[in-house]
Design a binder for these strands. Structure first.
Lengths: 342, 342
DNA sequence: TCCACTCGTGAGAGCGCTCTCACAACGTCG
DNA sequence: CGACGTTGTGAGAGCGCTCTCACGAGTGGA
């Protein structure tokens, strides 16, 4: 379907115009050094004049590459569309991939039918690699694809692999444990002694690690968890959890919330209960989504480098397409962003 | 790159296993009725046994279709990654496209280089259609692609086409004008008489239409705009604009804000100025993003059917791939969602 | 009985590309 | 001066598919 009325410039026509063979024209366009300057000039000029565009289908057929990678959100509840976190990872992946002239195929696997469809698609070699974001539990799909020979990278350590263990499939993660420790320490250093937490869904490693970090740091400070509530990384979940925390421990003076969306909900709950932030209760979020700075009061949070994670994932994937070697896990540092809430 | 060690089941091998010719196997897999039941069964069984997956590259080469459509955000400032609106449109597009076994190629055109790259890509016939979201000014790219024979659909009426004019390129939009009128009426009916507005960027038709709707309804009610501030659909922009509004008209008692993100910022500004919402100032947003219900106070807003727009765009595009006929503009209704802020 | 069909099928072309191989034209060296 | 690279080039195969064409077998009307 090459534009207006089958005018389709092909490599053949470029070669003809340049007065060389198709093979030579192909060599020039592929950037081979084994071409005379004369031929190279002629081919490049002809290609420009015809505004020739390589037919990727034909190329794929020969190279058995698709020059595209998939960005997959394996999130049954479509959380993707509510949490800016995903957009930001996507941005990073997109940036890296665009720089390599590779296309990004986007997929959300909400139900089993879609999972199956995608698995077939990927196993059929229609993408050169797959980036998975937001895995729950011990999802077998990434491993399956990897075993089928498709390069795979994960955002976030898969559940079932310990933090210091070699992983069966490559991943890029943020230092969730360290970030949560830093958040907890920040509250303690501000003199808070009754520190609670709102965790994320514990079928995700990120939530588990942040929870562990919180407990670990409290223990190091000779404190005990004042109250713990579990939620699902959503605003309403955070609000509900904050209410539960206040019910369980009325004297609460600090909270580590496992992501910003929940922290927004927590802020709302604290407001409803008449607690001032940070005067009565100090709050630290996690992620540093764009909205965090616009909250009332602006949220102190643990920044995780979402776009960079995306970039790292895409870069690793692109390399794996070439050499097919597995990548060691990459854990990027987090950083406290101090605003008003703590 | 078909999975493990070049094992690649091809149509040929399926045909051989089924004891028919490649042509017949192809017919079965294409769903042609001109095949005997016997042959059909044999082919389907063989395909299942080999877990055959059609090679899309080879198919594309013949059909001159790519079985993929592009989702393009032409947003220089990458607003995409901050505004949930886009995610929700993307969700709709994804849903429609997935149901047709078509892939979604995702692209963000942040700079001229990317624009050019994408234009070449699309003009080269590497996607069967292009959905543009969030166009600014009178962007020539959609028209260019359409003239080059690529089916194109827009989310949002392009600037330069009046609401009742036939459009040069198909689009799906929400009833921005009607929605803004309804929002304004809601405030007036609640007894508000000094009603201001925060507009979006006026290089986008959605912002212009909402602004017009506001003025139009005020005029119909024999009121005049109390104060007008322009912003950019972002939270910080909305906050700044709200402050400007209060500076210009201290007695303001109602505000129509052109999207929810800005309304969130406006809420913040009102809070900073000690105005209670809705008691002192009533506020209506636009979009009904997931966060709207979680704001403090929960936002009354004009819901636009974001996912449905996405779905409509994708469906139209998929039809256009077949018959190549242009689609008339489609304008979907909006609806007031009453919460607390007004 | 013959011609005109419809129906299911197979043979084969060819989509546009990459890649291997052969080959001519040129050094370079023993 | 013949044997041996090296370099630029073209011819041709073939990736896996779709689609056109031809053909035999069955069906029905004149």
């Amino acid at each position: 379907m090459t534009a207006r009325h089958g005018e389709a410039p092909t490599l053949e026509s470029v070669a003809a115009r340049a007065g060389v063979s198709r093979a030579t024209a192909g060599r020039v366009l592929a950037g081979s050094p084994r071409v005379s300057d004369h031929a190279r000039d002629a081919v490049l000029r002809a290609a420009a004049e015809l505004s020739y565009v390589t037919n990727r289908a034909a190329r794929s057929l020969m190279t058995r590459r698709s020059d595209s990678i998939a960005f997959v959100v394996a999130e049954p509840e479509e959380r993707f569309f509510a949490d800016p976190f995903f957009s930001l990872v996507l941005r990073g992946v997109h940036a890296a991939v665009a720089a390599h002239d590779v296309q990004l195929v986007f997929a959300v696997l909400t139900d089993d039918a879609e999972r199956e469809r995608f698995a077939r698609f990927a196993r059929g070699g229609h993408v050169d690699g797959v980036a998975f974001v937001s895995l729950h539990g011990a999802d077998p799909l990434p491993r399956e694809l990897q075993d089928a020979g498709v390069p795979v990278m994960l955002q976030g350590r898969p559940l079932g692999t310990a933090r210091d263990e070699p992983a069966p499939v490559g991943y890029v993660d943020a230092d969730n444990h360290g970030g949560a420790r830093a958040a907890t320490r920040l509250l303690a250093e501000a003199g808070r002694t009754r520190i609670g937490t709102v965790t994320g869904p514990l079928d995700m490693a990120a939530a588990v690690d942040r929870f562990d970090g919180y407990r670990c740091e409290l223990a190091a400070l000779d404190l005990t968890p004042a109250a713990v509530a579990h939620a699902d990384f959503s605003v309403v979940g955070g609000r509900r959890a904050m209410h539960a925390l206040l019910d369980a421990e009325p004297l609460l003076d600090g909270v580590v919330v496992a992501n910003d969306l929940m922290a927004l909900g927590a802020l709302q709950a604290l407001n409803e209960r008449g607690r001032r932030v940070p005067d009565d209760v100090a709050l630290v979020g996690f992620d540093d989504i764009p909205l965090a700075g616009a909250a009332a009061p602006p949220l102190t949070t643990v920044r995780q480098p979402m776009a960079e994670m995306g970039r790292a994932i895409a870069t690793a994937l692109l390399e794996m397409v070439g050499d097919r070697s597995p990548r060691p896990p990459l854990v990027l540092p987090t950083e406290i962003v101090r605003r008003v809430s703590a």
